[in-house]
């Protein structure tokens, strides 16, 4: 396998493994996760019904994060390009699939977007009066956008533009898109040959700033803390506690937050990558155990550090499980993305 294809597979695998492992702990606090697992959650395990919000689901099944990314990649690869149409088709196919394993995880913003695309009327709410859509500044854009980084390997600027094309379909606001561009840019950078977590975090900041600038005038106005400012703080925390896994995880969770808003989950992902210097397994562990939207933070960070490091030990341990339980073929997708990129 070429280095590039190996990096692509690493990215897909780390994102999907973090998502499936995060499915075990999602919506728990650090405290409840620690209590249930007697320490850290360190594997994709069976969660009994009632133990956690997603208890009773089949182990190894990913959630909305990676599955929407996968479906989107399939559409883009089929078209040979990233387009708004492809992004819309992916969302519709994802929601309309009969007996879907994933739609139970659908977030509020993606569901609203699906209804808009399909022309399904939504009940009136008082928020309809407003000129802002503050509730849509969620992490549902950033969760799926790592795929854009892979399709633009090494091309940070194009990754930012295409992240906006893909994610504006569901998340039409500059905060969610700033977060998405940070993840896409960092993933694109991580695909370079000789690169470390340092340049990747820098690319993340460039993505957050550029993504905001490029989307603010073409989207619905939105209130909220900025991705950029919270990322600065998250990186400071990551640096401060680089040698202390628990303290890094606690402080990022307590001060930045790891929840549904894009301005929590995205900065948290970069804080975690910084705290563990881009180590693939430690990134997954910290994201999965940091509480709240663990699977999304893990999936986003996984796309980045997986591209940085390649699949490593994850391949033997998890590739079959993820492929089998989700009907995916991650190696084939890595090959197709590699072909899409051309050259080599």
């Amino acid at each position: 396998m070429s280095d590039r294809r190996s990096k692509i597979l690493g990215s897909l695998l780390a994102a999907s493994v973090a998502d499936a492992m995060g499915c075990c702990t999602e919506n728990g606090s650090i405290e409840t996760i620690k209590k249930y697992f007697g320490g850290l959650c360190t594997d994709i395990v069976d969660m009994p019904e009632g133990s956690f919000p997603h208890g009773g689901t089949t182990k190894g099944v990913v959630t909305d994060d990676f599955s929407i990314a996968y479906y989107s990649a399939e559409e883009f690869l089929k078209d040979g390009k990233v387009s708004e149409e492809g992004a819309k088709r992916a969302v519709i196919r994802w929601f309309d699939e009969p007996d879907s394993k994933y739609t139970r995880y659908a977030g509020p913003t993606s569901r609203a977007a699906y209804n808009r695309i399909k022309g399904i009327p939504m009940p009136h709410t008082k928020q309809d009066n407003l000129v802002t859509r503050n509730r849509e500044a969620s992490n549902g854009a950033a969760m799926k956008v790592g795929i854009i980084g892979l399709l633009n390997a090494g091309n940070v600027d194009k990754a930012i533009d295409e992240a906006i094309v893909m994610c504006k379909v569901t998340h039409d606001n500059a905060i969610a898109l700033s977060g998405a561009c940070a993840i896409a840019a960092a993933t694109a950078k991580a695909m370079e040959e000789r690169v470390s977590w340092l340049e990747v975090v820098e690319a993340g900041f460039y993505g957050a700033r550029e993504g905001y600038k490029r989307s603010v005038d073409i989207t619905v106005p939105t209130c909220g803390a900025t991705i950029e400012r919270r990322m600065e703080y998250a990186i400071d925390l990551g640096l401060q506690y680089q040698d202390d896994f628990d303290e890094a995880m606690e402080s990022i969770s307590k001060i930045i937050g790891t929840g549904l808003p894009a301005n929590e989950a995205v900065p948290a992902a970069f804080g975690i990558i910084t705290a563990v210097k881009g180590d693939i397994w430690k990134t997954i562990l910290m994201a999965v155990n940091a509480g709240d939207d663990t699977d999304t933070v893990g999936c986003m960070a996984g796309f980045i550090v997986g591209a940085l490091e390649g699949p490593g030990v994850l391949k033997d341990k998890y590739l079959d499980l993820i492929n089998r339980e989700n009907g995916f073929d991650l190696e084939k997708m890595a090959e197709d993305i590699d072909t899409y990129l051309g050259g080599n």
Binding site: G28, S29, E31, S251, S253, K254, G257, G259, G291, D292
Partner: peptide, 13 residues
């Protein structure tokens, strides 16, 4: 126990 950041830490900021 519920998820969320910490009031005291955010107050310090």
């Amino acid at each position: 126990s519920v998820t969320g950041s910490d009031v005291v830490e955010r107050m310090k900021l």
